[in-house]
Every structure is written in C-alpha cells, then in structure tokens.
Design a protein around this nucleic acid. Structure first.
Length: 584
RNA sequence: GCGUUCGUAGCUCAACUGGAUAGAGCGCCGCCCUCCGAAGGCGGAGGUUGUGGGUUCGACCCCCGCCGAACGCACCA
C-alpha cells in the first residue's frame, strides 16, 4: 500500500519531471496546518537554477498537476511554495486502510539490505558504566528499526578482550587478587586489581617488567596465562549477559578482538605488498596517497610548517599489531562472512579520525567492494557540573547501579500512585517504566551532543519521558478493557468530525513515512520525537473526544484511532527497545 | 598551533539538513476532574539562535573573521 506521501510524490513527479528531468523533488509535511498537509519547494530550487521567476515555475507545475481525488488543487504561496491539502475523503480512506494494516503503513523496502551493526563493545575485566549505555541502546534501536523495515541485520558485539591491559591483570591476579571479592563481584575486583597494578607500574619499574613478561607469556600461548585470561573473559561475559538480559538487548555474534589475531600478520603483509603501507621509524604505516584534497585527507594534518603526514599505524615498532590492524581484519571478516550492504559502527566521537582512516584504507585496499561504512558517533559524557566524566577518578556510575536505581524509583512511584496494586505487579510495572525512562532519556537528545549525565534528568518521570508515552498507551488499553465484547477494526470508510481526530489521524499516517529516513540518517531520536508528538496529539484528542460515550460512527472512528495509536505507540517504543505495561 | 564537533529561552535539549511566525520538557504564573485514568489537558510570561561580515527570493543551517567549550593530533583502544 502506497503511503499518502508516496501517492502525492508520484503525482508531483508526473507534473515536474517531463519539463525538469533533473529535478530533485522534496515533499514534506507542512509545519503549520494553515498551509495544508504537504509542501514542496521544488519550484524555487528549479527557478534558481534556471534563473526564472519561482512563482511562474510553480504555476506551470500546478497547471500540470493531476490531483485525482487525492488533494484539492494545489496552492502557490509565499516565494513559490506549492501547498497540498488532502481531501477529507482521501484522508478517511487512507486511515481506513491504516487501521487494518498489520504493517502500520510501513512498506517493505524495494531491496532488502544486509546490515552489520557493531555496538556496545565493552572491555573484559571492566564493569560496564554509563558510558556504555549510548552505544548499546543506539545500536539496539538501529538494529530493531532496520529489522522492522524488512532488512537483515547482524548484531555484532566487538568485545575488548585483548591488549596490553592483560599484562597488568595477570600480574595482579597472581599477586594481589582477593578471591572472596572476586566471587562477590568479579568485575569490581578485576577493576580494583587493574587500577592497583597500574599505579604500581608508575612507581616501580620492577612491576612494569613483570607486567610485560606476563603479557609476552600470554601472547606466546602460555597455558597458565591463557587459562586465567579465559577465566577473565568468562566472568566478564556473565556480567555482560546479565545486563543485556535486563536491557532486552541481544547479539548475533560476540567476537572479541582476539578472534582476529590469526589474520593480523597477513593483513600487514598484504598491505605492504600492495604498496599501501610502508615502514617508518620502525613502525608500519599507511600514508596519504594524495588523491584527496588536503583538507579531506585523513592521512594529512596541518601545522605551522604546512601539511605533514598523519599516518595510520598498522604495526608498532615492537612488531605488535594495534587496533587499526584488528579493525581491518574485522572488516575483512565481516565482508567475507555476510557481504553486507552497510556496516554501522556505534562508538563515541573521539574515534572519528580513526574511522576516517580505517574507511579510507578500506577504500584504497578494496576499491571495488561496494559497502557503505558508517561511523555513527555520539558525544561524550559529562557530569552534573558540565565537566568531563572521568573514569579514573573512581566516580564512574556502574550501569548495574543505574538500572537498579531507575527500577527502584519507578516502582516506588507506581506504588505511591496505586497503593492497592499487588506488590509483584507494581514491581514489574516499575521495571518496565524505569528501564524505559533510562533508555528514552538516552535516545532523545541528538546523539552528537555531549551527554550531560544527571539522575534527575535520567529518572525524571514527568514531561517528555518514556512514561508519558507509556501513559498514553495505558489510557487506551483502559478504554478497551471497559469496552464490552470484542472489537476489531474494519476497512469501511468513516468520516472524522473533530479537528483533534484529523490531527491524530494525520500523525498516525506519517509513521510509515518517517521510519526509513530515521534508519538512513541513523537517528533514532527522530523516532522518539515522532512518538512524543503522537502521544501529545492523542492526549489532546482524548480530552476533546469522548470515545465510549460517543454514538454511532463517531464511536467507531474513535475506537479505530485509539487502536491504531496504541499499536503504533507500542511498536514505536519497541523499536526503541522500550516496553509498555497494560496498567500503571 | 592544526583538525573535528559544537555554542539556540533561567536550566536540559529539538528544529524534517536552505524554507513560511525557531519548538518541547523542567522551573515560574493562571485555569480544567458530577464526564473513558489529572502520571493528563488548555492558556501565559520567557529569544537580536555566541559575535561581526558575506552569499540569495529566504540563513540556527552555507562561506570568511573573531570569542568561548569539549574532544583529538603515530606506536592506548
């Protein structure tokens, strides 16, 4: 079923393209209802290119436009906008179709794509903290949206299970480990050990030597160290799985960095053989090939003497590989295994240069591989005071504690509002809205903004929060509980009588229109915005239009509006990884 | 110093990527439960979008210069 937007766009294209084959036609919902339902600025952009009067161009388009029972004749306004007003009959018919559409107006894609989404990526032996929540929740939401749109998705957790920190951990494990503490909270104890040894290495060169020896032993396959390392991974994975279980996040593969170790040497050799990489100061590096403008070249950097090299290291002077090498091996593995159309990396913004270099190396290495590589980055975490949230200071808030607190606060609130509710039920509702609040607060801001962490904001249950959306859903469910007998929508066409009904219906019809763009731009916050606006329009409708007490066709129309709203709210929240209770 | 990302209401953030009168939440001031859930709704105050230029029918958005912030700038990931 074509959306109203798609139908309108088709008619518009028929009026524009014969005269302007190169036109890039954009049709967007109007911000202000006084201008109708949809608008296009195509006449103005065309007029600019052709040096013609925009209103004349618009007049020509309008004259050729065949509205065909969909809209009133389009109107030209302002500098050359063309505004379209849907005919009530068209809106009624579109809504009647939507009300019985199990896909909620979301079309299956012209071509099904394969995505690989790399997100969360915690480190072994470190507790997950608030910093991990953005990657985890953003990645999960993108994966859910892609799947709902009909694409295939591989969710890949690239776990940090390799690197120099294991020298410290192994030395600490053998010298300062507290077994009881390890049993009680493995990650907390491993973190303590790591910090302790890290401090010791700075003061005592002998410790540094010991740490290096442990690392060499591990890398050379020493049985004892390998076993301890495996144990650290196992203990860490247990706690990761607990958190993912609570968050409702799942992965298709969890391949740690160590998985790619066998290929690292080959990668370096291949890049050297291709002439992509060469030795410099003992390290193996990729330098600029000077095919890009200097400003866009990730392998160049400007200083007071002009442009100089900013190479990507793929092998350190001590012969060891680094993260660029691992990422290249990972990239190759993913391409070979899944042949993805797009790989999405969800990490914080500090890695922008790294990914720019990585993507550029891939482009030079395999120029004929048509994969889209996207670095979906997000801002860093700030404390309440607006200063950077330092992990070293020991003030990191652990993710587990955050979730506990959110669920506890929400549960207390539910009980306060509904003293008669059985405690078990109140706790379950608290779990749903507590976790939902944390996720929603995290998804709502533009992901590139810095993240100001605050309990107040994160756990606020008023205003634009998950709870507001969940409350809309609960209100609707309450109506259907009171409705006697079963009810289901039919596709008969019925009229709207109130402006609140029309506003709500128009918003509902936009669900299928906005979703694909949200995936393309990797911006789940736009879905959060959409759902908030939908809930807001529903609340207005709810105040203005009695449902069960309405008679005849009005009652049927309003039941359909309620039902469709609840389905889109539930589905939309699910795409953000947020659940809905039936009561609260 | 150079690069990246930013600077929007008292605070926290949006703004469909160049479109019409810059919108929400929190906080503040008023109203609305004899009516489907008031965890809600309706209304009000609050803005020279850091600043100075430029580009054009039109700029929070693009270009240039300042001021300020965070992050990054080859052997950590």
């Amino acid at each position: 079923m074509a959306t109203l937007h798609a139908q309108l766009l088709e008619r518009l294209a028929a009026a524009v393209l014969p005269h302007f084959p190169e036109a890039n036609i954009q049709l967007s919902p109007t911000a202000n209802p006084q201008f109708g339902d949809y608008q296009t600025n195509v006449a103005m952009t065309l007029a600019k290119a052709a040096r013609r009067n925009p209103r004349e161009v618009a007049a020509g388009i309008v004259a050729r436009f065949v509205s065909d029972a969909l809209t009133a004749p389009p109107e030209i306004a302002g500098a050359g906008f063309i505004n379209f007003r849907l005919l009530p009959e068209a809106l009624h018919a579109a809504f009647a179709r939507l009300a019985v559409d199990p896909r909620l107006g979301v079309n299956t894609p012209a071509r099904q794509k394969q995505y690989v989404i790399d997100f969360s990526s915690p480190n072994v032996a470190k507790p997950m903290h608030v910093g991990h929540i953005r990657s985890t929740i953003l990645g999960d939401a993108l994966a859910r949206i892609a799947e709902y749109l009909g694409h295939r998705v591989v969710r890949d957790n690239h776990i940090g299970d390799w690197g120099t920190q294991f020298g410290m951990l192994l030395h600490g494990w053998k010298t300062v480990l507290n077994r009881d503490a390890l049993q009680a909270d493995p990650l907390a104890e491993m973190e303590r050990v790591y910090k302790l040894i890290s401090a010791q290495t700075r003061e005592n060169p002998a410790v540094l030597t010991a740490v290096r020896q442990e690392l060499v032993l591990l890398q050379n396959g020493d049985v004892t160290n390998q076993a301890l390392w495996q144990e650290m991974i196992r203990l860490s994975q247990n706690q990761f799985d607990t958190i993912y279980g609570r968050l409702g996040v799942r992965f298709d593969v969890s391949l740690g960095e160590s998985f790619y170790n066998p290929w690292l040497r080959d990668i370096v050799e291949e890049l050297r053989a291709n002439g992509l990489a060469r030795e410099s100061e003992g390290a193996i590096c990729v330098f600029s090939d000077h095919t890009l403008p200097e400003k866009e070249d990730p392998f160049l950097i400007k200083d007071e003497n002009g442009w100089r090299d900013n190479p990507a290291l793929i092998q350190k002077s001590d012969g060891a590989a680094n993260y660029t090498t691992t990422d290249l091996a990972t990239l190759r593995y993913r391409l070979d295994t899944w042949s993805p159309d797009e790989i999405i990396y969800v990490t914080d913004g500090r890695q922008q240069q790294h990914f720019r270099q990585l993507f550029a190396i891939q482009q030079r290495w395999k120029p004929h591989t048509s994969v889209k590589l996207a670095h979906v980055w997000f801002g860093s975490i700030l404390g309440d005071d607006g200063k950077p949230f330092k992990t070293r200071s020991g003030e990191t808030i652990k993710l587990t504690d955050l979730l506990d607190e959110a669920v506890e606060r929400a549960g207390a609130l539910v009980l306060a509002k509904n003293p008669d509710l059985p405690e078990l039920e109140a706790r379950e509702i608290g779990r749903i809205i507590g976790l939902g609040s944390v996720k929603y607060a995290d998804l709502l801001p533009n992901r590139q903004s810095d993240y100001v962490f605050s309990w107040e904001k994160m756990l606020s249950l008023q205003g634009n929060t998950a709870l507001y959306l969940q409350y809309s859903y609960v209100r609707i469910r309450s109506i259907f509980r009171k409705l006697e007998g079963t009810w289901s929508a039919t596709d008969s066409i019925l009229p709207f009588t109130e402006i609140a009904e029309i506003n709500l219906a128009r918003k509902l019809l936009q669900f299928g229109e906005v979703l694909p763009g949200i995936l393309d731009d990797h911006r789940p916050n736009l879905l959060a915005n959409y759902l908030y606006e939908l809930a807001s329009l529903f609340h207005s409708f709810f105040e203005a239009c009695p449902v069960l007490k309405a008679g005849g066709e009005s009652r049927e129309v309003r039941l359909r509006l309620c039902d469709t709203t609840s389905r889109i709210l539930k589905t939309g929240l699910d795409l953000l990884g947020i659940g809905v209770p039936e009561k609260m």
